[in-house]
Simulated scan of single mutants.
Amino acid sequence: MTTILVTGGTGTLGRHVVERLRQDGGNEVRVLSRSSRPYAVDLRKGGAELDAAVAGVDTIVHCASSPGGGDEQAARNLVAAARRAGVRHLVYISIVGVDRVPLGYYQAKLAVERQIEESGLGWTVLRATQFHDLLVRLFQAMAKLPVMLVPAGVSDQPVDASEVAARLAELALAAPAGRVEDLGGPEVRPLDDLARSYLRATARRRPLIRVPLAGKAYRGFRSGGHLAPEHRVGKGTFDDDLAARFS
């Protein structure tokens, strides 16, 4: 039996990873999050609770992440605990474009990639494009105003989180593979076009205004640094997701 620990195991991605690994059978799957017993751990603090969660684990799938900060410290604590426990394989989910778009969160994810590569552990890193869930939350926030303001000239390539989870589960059950091929959604579409799909699906009427922004991160998104058009691996489209959510 393989013992697998999934960090962030109750989150958007992690819960799908846990479900997929348990479906495969023959594995003990532990769920680590800040509030999920018996492995309730704040990775940013580490400590004895983290050591207990990692003890006897063969593979860690590291899905826990926070745009608000702390990912690098969390990774340091996790890597140290994994070394102490003799973990065989550390699988990390990252984001397409972390090395091309100078956004603070992306830079933190890239730093975590480097920590894992230099950890001395067997490792696998998968980069994926943005999840459908992220776009839905973004458009929900934008639609609160009477006018929907969308960054001009930006496209996106959203992917179904369950498809990313299936790939992570596959990687977790295999040998360490290093940096694997990116996983992108099936369509690259302008952000305003995706926003219109959201408005139609939710039966809302909002004027759409494309707003040019400033800064290096915006230029990175405009240039498509976060896209992987050569890796359109996902099958489920954003419109498929909207239909399932709102029909």
Rank of each mutant, 00 (worst) to 15 (best):
T2D: 07
T2R: 15
L5H: 10
T7D: 08
T7W: 04
T10I: 10
G14N: 04
G14K: 00
R15H: 06
E19V: 00
R22P: 03
D24R: 11
N27W: 07
V31M: 03
S33C: 10
S33V: 07
S35F: 11
Y39G: 04
D42P: 01
D42M: 06
L43I: 10
L43V: 07
K45L: 14
L50W: 01
A52N: 03
V54N: 02
D58H: 15
D58F: 12
T59P: 11
I60C: 06
H62E: 04
C63H: 00
P67K: 14
P67V: 14
G69E: 11
G69V: 09
G70T: 05
R76F: 11
N77T: 10
N77I: 04
V79L: 13
V79E: 08
R84W: 05
A85N: 02
G86Y: 10
R88F: 05
H89Y: 06
L90A: 14
V91S: 09
Y92H: 15
S94D: 08
G97C: 10
G97L: 14
V98K: 00
D99N: 08
V101Q: 14
L103T: 07
L103C: 10
L103S: 06
G104R: 14
Y105E: 15
Y106M: 05
K109E: 11
K109T: 07
A111Q: 14
V112M: 03
R114F: 08
R114L: 09
S119C: 06
G120H: 13
L121S: 04
G122K: 09
V125R: 07
R127N: 08
R127C: 08
R127V: 02
A128N: 10
Q130E: 13
D133P: 00
L134R: 06
V136S: 03
A141R: 13
M142T: 03
A143C: 08
A143E: 07
K144M: 13
P146R: 11
M148S: 01
V150I: 15
P151L: 09
V154N: 01
S155Q: 11
S155T: 11
D156Y: 07
D156A: 13
P158N: 03
D160N: 03
A161H: 04
S162M: 05
E163T: 05
A165D: 01
R167Q: 12
E170D: 11
L171D: 03
A172S: 13
P176W: 13
P176K: 15
A177H: 05
G178D: 12
G178T: 08
R179N: 09
R179P: 04
R179G: 00
R179M: 14
V180C: 12
E181V: 04
G184D: 06
G184Y: 00
E187M: 10
V188H: 07
R189M: 14
D193F: 08
D193Q: 15
L194Y: 00
A195S: 05
S197N: 03
T202W: 14
A203L: 15
A203N: 15
R204M: 15
R205K: 14
L208S: 01
L208R: 09
L208F: 10
I209D: 03
V211L: 08
G220S: 13
G224I: 09
H231G: 02
H231F: 15
H231Q: 13
V233L: 11
V233W: 04
G234T: 09
K235V: 07
G236T: 11
F238R: 00
D241C: 05
L242F: 01
L242Q: 01
A243N: 09
F246S: 02
S247N: 10
